[in-house]
Design a protein around this nucleic acid. Structure first.
Lengths: 236, 236
DNA sequence: TACGTTCTCCCCATTTTGGGGGAGTTGCGC
DNA sequence: GCGCAACTCCCCCAAAATGGGGAGAACGTA
């Protein structure tokens, strides 16, 4: 697989639009020797998905907001490394029902989902799934987990690149003081405490908060802090 | 390098404490054929660093808060892929002064920094640097960028694993309504609007906000929203 | 040097949050 | 069936944040 993986990476890196990437992803089932592949990215309001699942299932999943109960998504959200489906807790009632529906829709019983995070709160899951035994799947994941991680990384890099090139630029830049102010507020201080901490008057602090709010097109402080965090402008 | 890379990955994966990883990282200069290596992770208050730089330089860097003006850090924060130092904008006065100091401290003039993001707002930079010509460095990065990405990924995964095993677990779980409330507030709505949107009374909404605040040990709404975002509990 | 951005200071009326306390229904797991 | 957690509703008042407007000094860049 090493050789073919390299070809795929070359191919993805050379893509010039998001559609090419999608097509490449869908064509990977042969190369990766799995039944299903899915790549799903959430990027501050924007969303992109491409998978070999049936449309029925996708509609059902989105329509019912299944990402809320999908243990795979939950796990991917909170862990760094790949999520092996059979290592998750499927004991909950809703989780079990969800898995049942997924099986009926043709989703494999075994799967590996790789969480990937980008700047500005971007989050993506690259998933391969298949009908397989626990042992068979274990040997597959043991062998290819690292390759899949790399592939997911490359795909996500290209997808982000094309996304930012095409779209919604205008990233505001906060001044140091503005960032300070939002950072302290995000840390739970109120205005008086923050001003005290920065050794400036509370009024001055307000000016920073207001200008930051303006730059971030935020309605209030909470909104500004949320956006600043998502845009990677302040470290909390 | 492929073979050796594999050995390193094995070695890192088998580490049982953070010190072993640090030692492994420092020992990588030979294998990766570079002068300096640094791994620096920020994880919600916690911080871990390990590098081959001189202590003087590290103290100077931290003491002066250089991460604020360091173009490498800035770039790493906002982009997904590796940051090649010589592709950055060094024209600013402070950036130029910073680079001058770094050079004097023995940091290489060429470098590649790989940003990595984990759950709960974790952010790390894995950097290799060296004194080299632009061409020489280009051929190095062209050849090994992907390997370095993978290595950074593996190191970070193990570091996070050991960190979470040893430390500060107790991850609160928000109820769906609590997450809804914080999500809307993070989106810029006030309590009245959010309650309206969720078709519940404003008072009910307050109950959710307060219980979320309690679970998150947050001082106020802004703090709760910031923490929820960093902990990956709400998607903004 | 001139321009722009950043940093710093201040009042007052209005809106939004926070604190405290109480209570009934529903749904899931054991 | 019991218990627990989540969901829903309500009042009053104190504290905090927001909006609107004005202005001078310091810094770095062009």
């Amino acid at each position: 697989m090493q050789k073919r993986l390299h070809d795929i990476i070359e191919h993805v890196s050379g893509a010039s639009n998001i559609g090419e990437i999608g097509a490449t992803i869908l064509g990977l089932t042969d190369v990766l020797d799995v039944e299903h592949i899915a790549y799903h990215s959430v990027n501050g309001g924007g969303e992109y998905a491409s998978s070999t699942y049936k449309d029925d299932w996708i509609d059902c999943y989105l329509g019912n907001g299944y990402s809320r109960i999908d243990p795979v998504v939950q796990a991917g959200f909170t862990q760094f490394g790949p999520v092996n489906w059979n290592e998750l807790d499927w004991s909950g009632k809703s989780a079990r029902a969800f898995m049942g529906e997924a099986q009926s829709a043709g989703v494999g019983n075994q799967g590996l989902s790789i969480p990937i995070r980008g700047p500005r709160g971007q989050f993506a899951l690259f998933t391969v799934s298949q009908r397989d035994s626990i042992e068979g799947w274990k040997s597959y994941t043991d062998n290819f987990a690292l390759d899949l991680v790399m592939l997911a990384h490359v795909i996500n890099q290209k997808a982000l690149e094309l996304d930012t090139v095409q779209g919604r630029g205008e990233i505001p830049r906060l001044s140091p003081r503005e960032a300070d102010a939002l950072t302290l507020l995000a840390g739970g201080m109120n205005r008086a405490q923050s001003a005290d901490y920065l050794r400036i008057s509370e009024h001055t602090l307000r000016v920073y908060i207001e200008s930051a709010r303006f730059k971030l097109k935020a309605n209030n402080t909470t909104h500004a802090v949320a956006r600043a965090i998502c845009l990677g402008m302040i470290a909390v």
